[in-house]
């Protein structure tokens, strides 16, 4: 987990029922950074430096890469 923010206001109506949600930048073991959501965790429990792993959510005909804390 490189950095994050907790959005308390939706940036688009599609996210209205998801607030508060975590937008984050994660640094992959391979090097690149990417934007994602951190899921399956209370926003208050998210900290920089925590280890996270990818999980996939099907949205229509695409899949979004989310991350959640390593269990």
């Amino acid at each position: 987990m490189f950095t994050y923010t907790v959005a308390f206001r939706p940036t688009h109506p599609a996210f209205a029922d998801r607030v508060p949600y975590v937008i984050a930048v994660v640094e992959l073991e391979e090097g690149p950074k990417m934007t994602t959501n951190i899921v399956n965790v209370e926003p208050a429990a998210v900290v920089i430096g925590m280890e996270v792993e990818a999980t996939f959510e099907d949205v229509g005909d695409v899949a979004l890469v989310h991350f959640h804390p390593v269990s």
């Binding site: 939706p10 940036t11 688009h12 937008i23 990417m34």
Partner: peptide, 21 residues
């Protein structure tokens, strides 16, 4: 393609992530 699907659009979230870091 790579940020808005995660609820990231506009400038607020970027600056918030800078502030947090």
């Amino acid at each position: 393609e790579f940020e808005e699907p995660y609820g990231g659009s506009g400038a607020n979230y970027g600056y918030a992530m800078i502030a947090r870091r």
